[in-house]
Design a protein around this nucleic acid. Structure first.
Lengths: 196, 196, 196, 196
DNA sequence: CATGAATGAGTGTTCATTCAT
DNA sequence: CATGAATGAACACTCATTCAT
């Protein structure tokens, strides 16, 4: 009771719980719409799917980027956390790199339009770019460095273009059965190998 | 009778020449706008640049894809024709492949937004996709086959995903100095090499 | 029992004091926001400034006009009370009028957007209009009458248009250094003088 | 036939004539809506009144200010032109000033919301402000100067605040029968008179 | 009695596409 | 055959107001 004198009847977070439930509804709806219409789907569609007004979306996620981030936050975080783990548990840094990249690709490939959104230079997506980069770039860098240090791959490839390359290769990977992003990314990684 | 079989009733040639001049104006204008605003630039901008009405654009190029194709036709054709030539003149099929890919990348990287348009699943771009594929896929296939035959690369990679991969890697290559598409594509190609 | 006759059942005073403190917080917040964003500022901004929910604002002040009135009540009252005082203490009724008008202008000019709100015919501001008129019109009328009676000004100008005129002249007086409301109002008052 | 080879059948401006007719429809519709809903009326309302799509409005008048200006251009111009004429034909510069001001007031008072729009500091109305000032300020200045020169009024009042004052006094003049802008403006002008 | 989440009408603005001239 | 005016669907975003907690 330090600064809130308003201790009414019961729950110390009843409103909060409701709002949170609603947030989850929103996230689920957004995820669903993202799958069918991509991450640039009209706000109204998402609102409709969630059964709420558009205002609610804007309240919770002022920016589209905020919504996208929220939708995928857990998975991005998981991907980030997997980096060190893989490094520790894999037979070699290069293998760890391969596995991590695979994880990352698996994530991107299943999100309709996300890979493309990550490459777009639309104002309003900087936050999204920033989030991904903040979260994953260090991890990727660490893996790359380790593989360089172990002598398995050439040095000289910055993690940034590497990640963007992977992201790019994932564009349109769903929606086209003839295209196999995973395979191409594997090729890209293979291309890093020290020839000798 | 070089490429237009449609010789209708009247026009004794002078009219034909006029029309062609007009068409060229359109193409030049479109090219200019594509450079600055990308291939998805508003039709009106292109019309304005050409100094014609939008209707004229639509008459000549019913679909945006038609316009894009027309703008880049020569360069696509050149790229297509370079395939066999390179194969004949290069020290090895793999080198020919490398050179051809480089050519292709050079083409895509300088066309603002074209690489992205090639990957978009927007209805209305199928024609564009089709044209590129019709024109370049066989060439790419031939180069790939030759390199497989010479034992320089693994077999098993279809030319379609390979080309799409290259195209994808070129997305956003202009407009971001930290990203080096050519380098990544080189890595991808290197990844094809037979390890032994 | 000075101005609130509504003493309901329970509250023994301490609660009353709390409520009043709360109300004051609201008024202070509103005043602050009015200064920066004008009297038509979003309700939420005011709520935020006060650190309360919007519902609280609505509970205390069902209408925006109610809030505005409450914020400026003291000053309006002071202005109203100054009328008779000035009349008694000034060398002549006309001088009293001049001084009172100056007071009024001084009040309006410093309230961002208030003068404009007083002229707006937006539904929802009638209460505000009514309050100002109820409070100040009689005072203004008295001053005008006295000056007519003393032969200093022409008769025939109703206090209502006079007050509205003054209010109008104060619109936009802040925010434009090239505009001098006080000067113009002085001219208006001077125009009332009996020519002879 | 210098630069337009397109001399078809008949009219050298048939399209032009149509468009112009349409423009007039737009202006009439806008004027009508301005009367009922003020110059800040929704674009859609104006479009509906004119029986056109909103796009048509934007085509002809990219900015709201452009539309407002167009609607009132003739009258503003007439007002501007009346200045010198009145100066030449009136018994004295002061009388000319009175008459001109009356003209100006007559114009403003009949345009619902225009006077207010002229005082608003909304971005997007600068063009409107600029137009009025460009057109009328010099005229007003000339009249003021002449009346000063003739010794009829005090010097020292800049035309800018004077005009803004007049404009302000006209706010809300329609829609309130108890308010008489003309009378107040007359007072303001009278206030300028040299006392002796 | 306070909260602030939710609502959704309202508005500006863009642009592909059609079609009368 | 060219023109470009007209159309209107589509979208983002804001805020006053209500009401469940």
């Amino acid at each position: 009771m330090d600064d809130t004198g308003r201790s009414s009847a019961s729950a110390p977070g009843s409103r909060r719980k409701d709002a949170r439930r609603n947030q989850q509804t929103l996230l689920d709806a957004a995820a669903a719409i993202f799958v069918t219409s991509g991450v640039e789907a009209p706000v109204r569609d998402i609102a409709a799917e969630a059964g709420v007004g558009v205002g609610t979306i804007y309240r919770h996620f002022p920016t589209r980027a905020d919504l996208v981030i929220a939708v995928y936050r857990h998975q991005v975080d998981a991907c980030a956390e997997a980096g060190p783990t893989l490094l520790a548990s894999s037979p070699s840094p290069f293998v760890a790199l391969e596995r991590w990249v695979d994880l990352f690709v698996g994530f991107l490939v299943t999100k309709h339009g996300l890979a493309a959104a990550l490459q777009t230079d639309n104002t309003g997506f900087e936050t999204l770019h920033a989030y991904f980069l903040d979260r994953l770039l260090p991890v990727c860098a660490q893996l790359l460095d380790a593989a360089v240090a172990s002598g398995e791959i050439r040095s000289g490839l910055d993690p940034y273009p590497f990640m963007r390359g992977i992201g790019n290769l994932c564009i349109g990977a769903d929606s086209d059965p003839r295209y196999d992003a995973r395979r191409l990314v594997a090729l890209l990684v293979a291309g890093l190998r020290r020839s000798g």
